[in-house]
Amino acid sequence: MNNQKILLVEDDEILGKVMSEELKEAGFEVKWVLDGELGVKAAQSGRPDLILLDLMLPKKHGFDVLSEIKSSPATSSIPVIIITMMGQDDDIKKGIQLGAVDYIVKSQHAIAEIVEKIKNFFAKEQHPTGQ
């Protein structure tokens, strides 16, 4: 049973479409926005269970989105996973320092693997001692 809410912040139309459709198919409720500003707004209004956050975003960079989410008491407890491209290791490090729980390198995985990772994330959340 998983009707957890996922907020997807991804500016690439195709990658965003594929991820959001596949996550929906896996049973998640997905809200997809295409820029950083909308990302912050949707985090505040939608109270998702998980945020998937791209970094290179129009209007507001992913780092700023992350900082704002983490510094606002209303949203600070929402786990954020960075979804990035290969070759941005420095960015990953910085993202983790800013409070992201994990990262996924998009170009390294088939979409099925990414969905699997998200499922595993929620499974772990529910059974923190497991795995």
């Binding site: 990658l15 594929v18 998009k106």
Partner: peptide, 9 residues
């Protein structure tokens, strides 16, 4: 990488 990943997915 972005378009290549799109094509693969």
């Amino acid at each position: 990488r972005t378009p290549v990943t799109s094509i693969q997915w």
